[in-house]
């Protein structure tokens, strides 16, 4: 049997744990499962339902019948597969090793505070990735080189804008514009310019919300799934808008 204070501490932790996952790109059913698993390890029953911006959760002590409920806001965090894996693993460790709340909290802290991938490294591999993408679409080597450079510039712009906390719709449209504008250099050379232009803003495609949206919908979290897809669609529209500005400038040389 838990005292009210213990129950409150469990609720606080699970609220933080669940919203952190939902904010960093974990699909809904996994976040729900992981949170309930932590609850099971601590001897309480956890129920939660989530919306795009907030989560409602209730922790019930089955012995005393006492329950506490809270609404917690979901923070806007960068997507992280590493934390997705680690926090999932933490819930299994809690259950299999029968960890106490203090120990779970300590491990959670170290996992969340792990450094993220180095931004310069990310910049370089994103450039290479988009260049290979151009090759996959049948671009020639000149186009590949131009796409590599355009992506470096576009992604660097995105990183700078992110650091300044620019609204993410503007950020997507702006980076798509800059990347595609750099790729118009391909029009000056005898190469597959259309493919270079087409590939240059593709590093922005929001793959994680798109796929998470589909997973959520088929798993029955339809509201969450649809809102993720709407979000992803808005971002795609922003990419298209940024690209359109460039296309309007150069359309005559493309026809």
């Amino acid at each position: 049997m838990k005292t009210k204070q213990e129950l409150k501490e469990i609720l606080d932790f699970i609220a933080r744990y669940a919203t952190y996952q939902l904010g960093s790109g974990v699909h809904t059913s996994r976040a729900v499962r992981n949170s309930r698993r932590i609850g099971e390890a601590l001897g309480v029953d956890v129920q939660l339902s989530s919306f795009q911006k907030s989560t409602v959760l209730t922790v019930l002590d089955p012995e005393s019948g006492e329950a506490l409920t809270r609404v917690a806001a979901i923070p806007a965090l960068p997507i992280s597969f590493e934390r997705n894996s680690d926090l999932s693993a933490l819930s299994w460790e809690a259950l299999d090793e029968g960890l106490a709340l203090d120990e779970i909290r300590r491990r959670y802290r170290t996992l969340v505070d792990k450094p993220r991938m180095d931004p310069i490294f990310t910049l370089a591999v994103v450039g290479l990735a988009n260049a290979s993408f151009c090759r996959l679409f049948g671009g020639d080597w000149t186009a590949v080189g131009i796409v590599f450079t355009a992506t470096l510039v576009g992604y660097a712009v995105k990183q700078r804008m992110q650091a300044h906390g620019v609204n993410h719709f503007l950020l997507f449209a702006g980076s798509a514009f800059v990347a595609s504008l750099c790729a118009t250099a391909a029009l000056r050379f005898d190469c597959t310019a259309e493919i270079a232009l087409a590939t240059s803003p593709l590093f922005l495609v929001p793959g994680v919300p798109l796929i998470n949206g589909v997973i959520d919908i088929v798993e029955g979290h339809v509201l969450m799934g649809v809102s993720r897809l709407v979000n992803a669609m808005l971002l795609i529209v922003c990419i298209a808008a940024g690209l359109s500005v460039t296309l309007l400038m150069v359309k005559d040389s493309l026809l």
């Binding site: 597969f81 590493e82 990735a129």
Partner: peptide, 12 residues
């Protein structure tokens, strides 16, 4: 391409 695009989402 997969490694690069994956790197944006901070994979392990």
């Amino acid at each position: 391409a997969a490694i690069g695009f994956g790197a944006i989402s901070d994979p392990p």
